[in-house]
């Protein structure tokens, strides 16, 4: 698991991939920071993190970050090496997930600069900032698990990126969709509504059940990824 994590981290940072993605993300969030906070002299940075542009960019960031993570191995035949080595498929998937997640964490750490700036200029340090970051990291992890899953479905990176982008978009608008249904369907759809709980974190509600929700969301998608790879082993030539 560690070997795979290390290798993936290296391939992110030895190529322009991680830099371009992180740079793009920071550019957009910094523009939001400038507009909402610096230019208007407003001290609360939470609005950046729940702004729709920010969420959209996050979805793009994650789907591009994860598109090659399993699809490329399948296409280049390196999957054979990973599966025939004495490493279980579960730890291979977890290793890959953690690598993408680490890039996401690096990016998140850089955004700490926003609260640091506002606090330096006299804005209060609030629990909502910490809660918000916890929510953001959990949301990022959940999106990454969806991306990893999408990447396991195909050997084409383009298809993978489309699948993960569209599914995350759907999860995003699930709130609106689920309210137009009723009863059981609404409950099921609500389960996929990752954004509603996320916004709670920024209101300062640190709900254990939400944390458990996100962690189990990640676990379910990683489990499905393992199943997809296992299933293909049984049916392929």
């Amino acid at each position: 698991m560690l070997a795979i994590w290390k290798k993936e981290i290296k391939s992110y940072f030895y190529s322009p991939m991680a830099y371009v993605l992180i740079g793009f993300f920071l550019l957009v969030s910094s523009v939001l920071f400038f507009v909402f906070n610096l230019a208007s002299g407003y001290g609360d940075i939470r609005w950046i993190f729940i702004h729709w542009i920010f969420i959209l960019v996050l979805i793009m960031f994650v789907s591009i970050l994860t598109m090659r993570i399993l699809a490329e191995d399948r296409k280049n035949g390196t999957e054979v090496l990973l599966i025939t080595s004495p490493v279980s498929i579960t730890s291979m998937v977890i290793g890959k997930f953690l690598a993408a997640f680490s890039v996401f964490l690096v990016m998140t750490a850089i955004t700490f600069i926003y609260p640091i700036i506002t606090i330096a200029y006299g804005a209060p340090f609030t629990v909502q900032i910490i809660g918000g970051y916890i929510g953001f990291i959990l949301l990022g992890g959940s999106f990454i698990s969806v991306g990893v899953f999408a990447s396991s479905l195909t050997e084409s990176q383009v298809v993978a990126v489309v699948i993960s982008f569209v599914s995350m978009l759907l999860m995003w608008i699930m709130d609106a969709v689920s309210s137009s249904f009723g009863g059981f369907i609404s409950k099921v759809l609500n389960w996929f509504s990752v954004l509603a709980r996320y916004e709670d974190f920024y209101r300062g509600i640190l709900d254990i059940s939400s944390i458990v929700y996100y962690l189990s969301f990640i676990a379910v998608f990683l489990f499905l990824t393992v199943r997809v790879i296992e299933k293909r082993r049984w049916s392929q030539g």
Binding site: K10, S11, T78, V80
Partner: peptide, 26 residues
């Protein structure tokens, strides 16, 4: 195992790749 298509990561150097494989095979 050497499959028909060598399972190499083309964006790695030979040395890095073999180091990765040694780690993988612990």
């Amino acid at each position: 195992y050497l499959p028909e298509q060598p399972p190499v990561y083309t964006d790695m150097t030979v040395k890095d790749y073999l180091e990765f494989v040694s780690e993988l095979k612990s």
